[in-house]
Design a protein around this nucleic acid. Structure first.
Lengths: 162, 162
DNA sequence: CGTTGATGTTTGCGCGAACAACTTTCTACA
DNA sequence: TGTAGAAAGTTGTTCGCGCAAACATCAACG
C-alpha cells in the first residue's frame, strides 16, 4: 500500500489549503487598501487591545512574528503614520506601539469589505449551527497548539491536561 | 461600540491561529529531518501524485508558491538529490519534477513522526465523529476558496469519509 | 553602590520568495 | 508555411523576515 495516502495527511492538507486559500482571498482587500497581510494583522491586534496599544513583544507574541519582525513592521507602519511608538512609563526599555487616528481610519475604511469577504468565503457558507460547531472545534485545537496566544491580554494560568 | 469586535473577526482569527500554530508544531519534525515546510510540502505533493511526478506549474498550483518559487525549491531539492527533473515527452517546454529514491526514503523516514504529530496536535483531540464533521466543513470551504486545488490530478476526488 | 545576569528592543546579515523580464516552445490562423 | 500570441520555465532584482549579536535598561544581591 501507498504509505503516503493516510487520512491524517489528507486532513492536515485540507486544513492548510483552507487557511491559505482563505488568506489569499482576503488579501485582495488588504492590498487594495495598501496593506500587507502582516500589516493588517498588526493593526487589528492593536485595534482589539485596550487603548489601542500593545508592547512590542506582546505584539510579537500575538502575531507569530519574531520581535525583530515586529520592529520592522512597526517601522513601516510608523513611517506611514498608521502607528506610533510611545514609551512605557514604568519600564524605559519597553515601548508601546499604538494606533494613530489615521491607523484607526484606515482600518475602519477597509473593515466593511473585510467582513463581507469573511462572509463570502467562510461564514456564510455554513449554517449557523455548523459554524458554531466548527469554531468550537477550532478552539479545542487552538488551546493545545497555542497556549500563549493571549499574551498581553490577560495573565492566564495554563493547566496541563495530563 | 467597538467596530473591531466582530464575531467574524474572531472566527477568522481563530482559524488563522490554529493553522499557523499547528504548522509551527509540525515544523519541528521537518527541520529535524533537514527540510523546510515548503520542502516537505513539495515532496509530499510529488509523493501523492501518480508516478511520483508532477509538472512544475502544477506543483506551483498545488502549493501556493509562484512558479519561480517552485523553480528554486526544486533547484534546492535536486541539489540534495531528493528530486530530479525530467523532460516531458509531449511538450518540450515543460519538465517534470519527480521524486528520487532518496526523496522517497527521506519522506518515509520522517512520516511516522509526522503522522504522530498530526495525531498529537490535531486529530486525536477530536472524537471521530467530531473530526468527520470538521473535515466536512473544511471541504465545503475549500471547494469555494480553492477551485483549482486539484490541478494536475485530473482524477477523482478523495473518498468521502462517512 | 557596583556587578552580574535577565529582559525589551533594535541592527547586521543572509536566505527565501514574489514580480517582472526573458528564452524557448507550442498553438492558431491566414 | 510563416507569423503572432500564448504558455512553461528560468533568471535578475528587490524586499520581508528570522537569527544572532548588540545595546539599553531593569532586578537582584553582595
Amino acid at each position: 500500500m501507498d504509505p503516503f495516502d493516510d487520512p491524517r495527511l489528507t486532513a492536515m492538507g485540507l486544513l492548510a489549503e483552507v487557511s491559505t486559500g482563505l488568506a489569499a482571498q482576503l488579501n485582495k482587500t488588504f492590498s487594495a487598501a495598501g496593506l500587507s497581510e502582516v500589516d493588517f494583522e498588526t493593526l487589528i491586534r492593536l485595534a482589539r487591545s485596550p487603548q489601542h496599544k500593545l508592547r512590542m513583544s506582546d505584539l510579537a507574541g500575538q502575531t507569530s512574528l519574531s520581535t525583530s519582525g515586529i520592529t520592522r513592521v512597526v517601522d513601516r507602519l510608523e513611517r506611514e503614520g498608521l502607528v506610533q511608538r510611545c514609551p512605557c512609563s514604568t519600564d524605559r526599555r519597553a515601548s508601546y506601539a499604538s494606533l494613530t487616528e489615521a491607523g484607526v481610519n484606515r482600518l475602519t475604511a477597509l473593515m466593511p469589505q473585510h467582513l463581507e469577504d469573511i462572509d463570502t468565503w467562510f461564514t456564510s457558507l455554513l449554517a449557523p449551527e455548523q459554524l458554531a460547531t466548527f469554531l468550537e472545534t477550532l478552539r479545542t485545537i487552538r488551546d493545545v497548539v497555542r497556549p500563549c496566544a493571549t499574551a498581553g491580554v490577560e495573565r492566564v494560568e495554563q493547566v496541563t491536561t495530563g
